[in-house]
Structures are given as C-alpha cells and as structure tokens.
Design a protein around this nucleic acid. Sequence first.
DNA 1: TTCCTGGCCT
DNA 2: AGGCCAGGAA
Length: 346
Amino acid sequence: MAHWYEHHKRDLPWRHTRDPYRIWLSEIILQQTRVAQGMPYYKRFVEAYPTVAHMAAADERDVLRLWQGLGYYSRARNLHQTAKLVVNEHAGLFPGTYHKLLTLKGIGTYTAAAIASFAFGERVAVVDGNVYRVLARVFGIEDDITTTSAKKRFAALASRLIAHADDPATFNQAIMEFGAIQCTPTSPDCLLCPLQQPCVAYQTGRQQVLPVKAKKAAVRERFFHYFVFRNGNRLALRERTNRDIWQNLYDFALVETDEPKTGFRQLELSEKLQKLVLYSTQTAAPTEATQLLSHQRIRATFYEFVVPDRLTDDLFDGLSWFSVDQVAALPKPLLIVNYLKTHLEK
DNA sequence: TTCCTGGCCT
DNA sequence: AGGCCAGGAA
C-alpha cells in the first residue's frame, strides 16, 4: 500500500506542511467534504488567516462568511472557538498529543489522530469512512459499521496495522488515499488493485456488500384513525393480533391511511363500522396525538362516540366491551394509555 | 428525482 | 440516536 501511495498520491497543499494549524484547518474543512470542494476554501482560509493568531483575532461572522457554502456551519464556529482557545490558553501552540487534541471543540477521534500523526508523528491510526471501507473489504469484516462494537473492532485493527508501519503519517495518508481513489464506495477498481490477492471481498465477490452499514430505517409515517366507542362506563377495545406493532396489546377500532385525513367522513369505513358510527352520537371534537417509534411515526386521531344500548351487540372485528376498570387492567400501547389519561378522567 | 456519503456534538 | 449541510452518484 505504501508503494501504491507513492505512485498515486494527490499533490495536496496540506501535505506539504507539518504546521499543525494548517493541518488542523484542512482536516476540519475536509470533514464531510470532498477534496475538490474543500480545496478553494482551504486556500481562502490560509490567505485570510495565515496563522491561528490571525483566525483568533477575526470576528466569528467573518469566519462564517468565509465558510459560506461549505455546510455544517458548526464546524466554522468550533474552528473559530478553538483558534481563540489555542491562542489564549496555549500561547498559540496546538496541543501536541492525540489525547489533548481530543479535548478541543470540533476535534473528534478521527481529526485528533490525523493531526497527531501528520503534524507530530504520533503513532495513532485514523479511522474514517475510507478506512472502514478498506479494512472491511480487505479483511472481510461483516460487522455493521454503525455499531459501537464494530467501531471498536475497526479501531483496534487499524492500531495493530499501524504498529508495524515504517511511518505512521504515511500509513494513515496511504490507507485513506487508497479508499478515496482505488477502493471507492460503489465501483472499486479491483482489476488494477494491488491488494487483489489478499482481499477477502475481492476473492469472494463481496465488494458491493462491504462495508456493511445498517441503513437507518426510514421513519415511516402512518395515520391511525381511532373510533372510541362508549356505552355507559364501557369502552370497545380489541387485541392487536396482526403482524404489526403492538402485538397482543389492546386498542380501539382502527382505520389506517397512508395520508393524513381531516375528519372520519373522508375515510373508507367498513359496513359494520359505518352503521355503528351512523347510529351513535359523536361526543367530542376529534383529538390528535403523535407516537414516535424507532422506525415509525404514528399520527393518531381519536373520534369519540356514544353507542346506544340497542346497538351494543353490533361490535365487530374482535372488538369487545370493557368496563373502565377492566380497560385499566389491559395491556395497551402508550398512545392509548395517554389518550385514556387525558380524555377519560372523571 | 431520490439516494448516499461523511465526523462531531448534544 | 438524531441533527447538521451540500454535492455527487444512481
């Protein structure tokens, strides 16, 4: 990989300095940012603020103005805050170790390792998105990289590898550059790859699968329209038995839609539900509630009806009458518990 | 058009 | 775990 790096490394301005200020500046700019986009910003910043003292003396709004268009503006605010701290508390000298760098605003594990190794030669491994990808593929690691345990595992592996490197800074640059240019996310250049032979992903055809990354479950939005039927001190509930959330808990008669609806008259009701609604009396304005699950957002509307005695045998779909005391003893989702709490108090 | 990528902070 | 942003890939 060191050999590959010597032949393929890009000529980037921050690779020609060991000035911790410039390395820090470049690393903050390159967080969540591609080199091509960050480059003009780096040049502008170095010109406007050649030293950390220049930056510390600037107004935050000027720093933000210079940052404009790069996104993630907390990076710029932290940049300025840290510049002031370095000048005021550290006499303008950057802390010289990984652990001290970690305490600065805007510097996490990746950036601390980058500065420590590039500026100070410390033997500490960077672990960024490139490194996850390269290691997962070469070593065939199937762990979900979004988990804490996987992050530990990759960091430990990178540490073992850098322990044997001639030069820690070059090792770190090389593995990231390799990930950025050769071992790219969607179409890695495996045919010309020097690691073809040892690469588990290549040998098993799993380049497209590795690294494994749990896609953050898109939060699905669902609209629940609850019909709360009441007769005297009894309420109509049913057990949820479908393959769905809240299995074996109790809720009310339910009509679900994919889209928001205003009022139950916009809903398509089953014949039996329609009849019950028709001959019952709506007793309160509909109320709304939202229940957030890990992967779903339930927006619920509750419609309250009093059912006349002559129709109490007309329940359907597993609904049964429960006295208020019985209801209290049933297992219910929080959405229902909260509704009962606020609408059934007497 | 939508999907994916990317460190740090709270 | 979710928010922060923009741009390149699909």
